[in-house]
Design a protein around this nucleic acid. Structure first.
Ligand SMILES: [Mn+2]
Ligand SMILES: [Mn+2]
Ligand SMILES: [Mn+2]
Ligand SMILES: [Mn+2]
Lengths: 220, 220
DNA sequence: TTTTTATTTTAGCCTTATCTAAAAAGAACA
DNA sequence: TGTTCTTTTTAGATAAGGCTAAAATAAAAA
């Protein structure tokens, strides 16, 4: 069985996230930028992860994650997202505060702990940011999601995720009254700048720029 | 503000536990034995903890914990015990399974997390082993506890802690039907070997050796 | 009070994970 | 197809935390 250190788990999770977002491979510099670790350090770690067969690494040509690696990355992501649910649902954290703490909790080693936590939370399928929680076998059921600015006039849906999950953006959404789970209806679409007006939970109307709307994902 | 690494937190907690148990100072070898780390490594760490002013360290003469160090040790102990309560009360862990996981969780850095966890658990005062949980200022209220073998014939009490908290001993207690919180009455004391018979929760009788009874602590 | 034993520290080595600076390789351009 | 620019790797350093073996010190015994 392959054993990973905390640092290795962080790299592998980053590589998984970077490669699942469309492209099948990622580069030393991408990982460096994403993780805020210098390229030289990334190179060295890639060599080590390659030796542990969790990634395919050809010097100068970027990395692909292996099946083994994917399984391990998904295990960490599962833990991260379950802890996020715990923090929000049980400890009343707001959804912009959880990432940092979950980045630590995700490394705690105890299969029983995660299994029981999952059960305790009622086997949630999505985390507070709307991202799917892999099951214990690494299977992920994702929902087809559309950026809010692409919903037609009078169209309805439910906010399930954000593209930009920076604390600043999340706080902004909280302030204007948008949140994961909110039922929305598009009341107006302004032609010339793409800004929109939406109705939230049949109660409150919000105006937002095309840029903001493009970072909000909904299911219809 | 003094920042400690995970390893330093573990050492400081060990030193606190070793010095609170009666004596006011402890030795390199004691720490080495307790933590299962070689004396040479302990020496080196004591030098570093001394430089950080969390212990008083005079080479060859053992260590005392400082006020600053005590505060930090109690913070870690508080986190450890709160997580133990969480694992037992919310995730149905048995009390002999929690120590290992709590030894990891106790290092997660987030004041909000601990505050909220405390609140979520209903501000518990004792952990599953009967040990007191320090408040956020490091204050501990302990109960006067007596070894079960010192309770007189027909005396009653409540099991609140164990001296030996090895998994083996805890499992043995579980098996015979003793547990933290159990109301007990001493039904018989055998003169020649000190073994006793007790009644648990007015339901079940248990025989135990003097050795076992001496490791069980009760309040009267 | 000297000698022996036990404890503790130091010296030197290893691994992990980071960094900066320099070298090498690949990609883009002329 | 060279030449230049960008990306990536290597080399060498540092810090944390562990180890073994050897040296130093304190405690116990003779
Ligand atoms: Mn992490
Ligand atoms: Mn998330
Ligand atoms: Mn610990
Ligand atoms: Mn405990």
């Amino acid at each position: 069985m392959i054993k990973l250190t905390y640092a290795e788990e962080n790299y592998l999770k980053a590589i998984y996230e970077l490669t699942e977002a469309g492209k099948r491979s990622t580069s030393t510099n991408d990982i460096s930028t994403w993780m805020k670790i210098k390229p030289a350090s990334v190179s060295d770690m890639l060599r080590k992860l390659g030796e542990k067969t969790v990634i395919d690494y050809r010097k100068y040509y970027g990395v692909h994650i292996t099946e083994e690696g994917k399984k391990l990355a998904l295990r960490t992501i599962r833990k991260h997202r379950l802890w996020e649910v715990f923090l929000v649902e049980k400890l009343r954290f707001s959804w912009d505060e959880v990432a940092e703490v979950a980045d630590e909790l995700e490394h705690v080693q105890s299969p029983t702990l995660i299994q029981r936590l999952d059960e305790y939370l009622g086997f949630p399928k999505f985390d507070p940011h709307g991202d799917p929680i892999p099951d214990e076998f690494g299977d992920v059921r994702s929902r087809p999601r559309v950026p809010l600015n692409e919903i037609e006039l009078d169209g309805t849906g439910q906010i399930v995720a954000v593209k930009d999950s920076s604390a600043a953006f999340l706080r902004y959404l909280d302030k204007v009254g948008a949140y994961i789970g909110a039922r929305i209806k598009v009341l107006e679409k302004v032609e010339f700048d793409g800004s929109i007006e939406i109705l939230v939970d049949n109660k409150k109307t919000i105006f937002m720029s095309k840029d903001v709307a493009g970072n909000i994902l909904v299911i219809q």
